[in-house]
Computed example of a mutant assay.
Amino acid sequence: MIYGYKRPLYNDEDCIEQTKKLNDFQVSYVLKEKHGSPKKREALEELLMTMQKGDVIVVEKFIVLADTLHHLMDLLKIVKKDGVSIRFIDEELSSDRVLEESLSTILSHFIRFHSDIIKQSTKLGLETAKSQGKSLGRPKKSDENIKKAIEMYHSNHYTLLDIKNETGISKSTLYRYLENTEV
């Protein structure tokens, strides 16, 4: 049997791209996670419990299936032991063909996978922070300090270092505000 597997990702929250790519294969059954988090991946667990010798799992790319290199290696060991293969569409790899690939090809896939891991965990972290009401990004400088820094700059009596020490406004921030006020 050929199984498809998909889950929400940083660049495909509704699994639209994954669905398109899975439709190009003769997938018998598709399992979809309800979330993109690495925890409680119930559809993946169901898939691992359901598969039998000779089955094939089709996924768009490494990050769909695994959250870390260690997790990917564990899954590859499990499917090998069970006589199942995994087809990675974007990487154009199959778990039973990995040894036929060159080291540079495999490493380029792993580099992209690592980048995807970072993007996915960053997206999940930002969503968690937002849901907890945390403000994102660098804190804004107070208007009082900005006004004082601009006044000090225009007085021509202070160096940029004096302005920074007095107000906490860096040279680049000061220049950015000066550009916005000089219209």
Rank of each mutant, 00 (worst) to 15 (best):
3 Y>L: 09
47 L>R: 05
100 E>T: 10
86 I>Y: 05
34 K>V: 14
95 S>C: 01
32 K>Y: 08
81 K>E: 15
24 D>Q: 15
38 P>I: 00
164 K>M: 07
21 K>Y: 14
77 K>Y: 11
171 K>D: 11
16 I>E: 14
74 D>V: 07
16 I>Y: 09
168 G>R: 01
28 S>Q: 14
126 L>D: 07
173 T>C: 06
68 T>C: 02
147 K>Y: 06
172 S>M: 08
27 V>W: 15
58 V>S: 08
53 K>Q: 14
158 Y>A: 04
161 L>F: 08
65 L>N: 08
121 S>V: 05
12 D>A: 05
69 L>Q: 12
97 R>V: 07
73 M>C: 09
82 D>M: 10
71 H>Q: 10
14 D>A: 06
155 S>A: 01
93 L>T: 07
174 L>K: 04
123 K>E: 13
66 A>Y: 04
59 V>D: 05
64 V>K: 02
28 S>E: 14
32 K>D: 13
16 I>G: 00
11 N>Y: 13
118 I>A: 06
125 G>C: 02
151 E>H: 06
30 V>F: 01
109 H>K: 10
176 R>S: 13
135 S>P: 05
176 R>I: 00
66 A>W: 03
165 N>D: 15
130 K>P: 00
74 D>A: 05
31 L>R: 01
74 D>G: 08
141 K>V: 10
91 E>I: 02
155 S>Y: 01
31 L>Y: 15
180 N>A: 14
57 I>N: 03
77 K>Q: 13
98 V>K: 02
56 V>K: 07
127 E>A: 08
3 Y>I: 06
23 N>I: 06
123 K>H: 14
5 Y>N: 03
99 L>S: 14
141 K>L: 08
105 T>E: 04
180 N>L: 13
9 L>I: 15
58 V>E: 08
151 E>S: 13
122 T>D: 11
88 F>P: 11
109 H>R: 15
137 G>R: 03
147 K>A: 05
80 K>L: 07
28 S>P: 01
79 V>R: 03
141 K>H: 15
37 S>P: 04
27 V>A: 11
117 I>N: 04
23 N>V: 01
76 L>W: 04
173 T>Y: 01
159 T>F: 03
146 I>P: 00
37 S>G: 09
73 M>G: 07
92 E>I: 10
174 L>W: 00
43 A>W: 03
167 T>K: 02
145 N>M: 10
109 H>V: 07
122 T>K: 09
55 D>A: 04
39 K>L: 07
60 E>S: 13
53 K>F: 06
130 K>Q: 13
